[in-house]
């Protein structure tokens, strides 16, 4: 049995390695990815067309914004799926939801450190979201960091303590609002007579030139993505850790 596994591993490895030999060299200017005119266009024209120095963000949120919108929907769907599988409702939910009960006092050292760090984490998350145009970052990464700050509250104290800031219905509203913000930018562009998610036309409703309108719309959709990712991250965590009861976590 073991030798069979070894043989299959060796054959798979050989297949993968032989495929590596057919790859173009690293940074080869004649490789299909580099010689195709679309990638040339992205590299040379992104800054002139959108005023965004980080072309990854421009491609993600503008040129293929439709794809990113449905990536956000995928995250939303994943969160809804986890809630629908795990969440259990009991008859005593109404009694327990109003009050916060600490079973044990939060640890002093952990509590103090988290009190110091959580604002910094949240500030850094906002920086990552807003600075996605100029450096690595954006809605997905910033949203995960922001969600992690709420998870840290739940870890360092109790799930109920985190619920005071982010109750369950508010989390789900936030997740939906994120996608609505994203789709809203597309719809406004549609109403102004352009294609869905064609941001340049938004200069009619923004005090900006068409190029700047693309820049600012990208920031807007990143914020929408961040809303959804934050909410779904926290929702997945709280459902998994409390086995769907939302009462007490770790």
């Amino acid at each position: 049995m073991k030798s069979l596994a070894l043989i299959s591993v060796v054959i798979t490895g050989w297949l993968l390695l032989s495929a590596v030999g057919d790859f173009p060299y690293w940074g080869d200017p004649n490789s299909p990815a580099n010689s195709y005119r679309l990638s040339q266009h992205f590299v040379t024209e992104t800054f002139h067309e959108t005023a965004v120095p980080n072309m990854v963000t421009a491609v993600l949120a503008d040129y293929r914004g439709y794809d990113t919108m449905f990536e956000t929907v995928v995250i939303f769907t994943a969160g809804i799926a986890i809630i629908s599988i795990l969440r259990v409702f009991r008859s005593d939910d109404q009694v327990a939801s109003g009050q916060t009960v600490y079973e044990k006092r939060p640890d002093l050292i952990v509590d103090t450190t988290c009190r110091l760090m959580i604002p910094i984490i949240q500030l850094f998350a906002l920086y990552v979201i807003a600075h996605g145009h100029h450096s690595p970052g954006g809605g997905f990464q910033g949203g995960v960091i922001f969600g992690a700050s709420f998870i840290l509250i739940a870890l360092s104290r109790d799930l109920q303590a985190a619920h005071k800031w982010v109750p369950e219905n508010r989390v789900l509203n936030l997740a939906g609002i994120g996608i609505l913000i994203y789709a809203g930018f597309g719809l406004v562009a549609m109403f102004l007579g352009q294609n869905f998610l064609d941001y340049a036309i938004l200069h009619k409703v923004m005090p900006a030139t068409p190029i700047e309108a693309r820049y600012h719309s990208m920031l807007g959709v990143e914020i929408g993505v961040a809303f959804t990712v934050t909410a779904i991250m926290y929702s997945i965590y709280s459902n998994l850790v409390s086995k769907g009861t939302m009462k007490e976590g770790l």
Binding site: D107, V110, T113, M117, I120
Partner: peptide, 16 residues
């Protein structure tokens, strides 16, 4: 600074 805060606290939490 961040690591100087986080690392001893996580050690403390694990030991507790």
């Amino acid at each position: 600074i961040f690591i100087m805060w986080a690392s001893p606290t996580s050690t403390h939490a694990l030991i507790k």
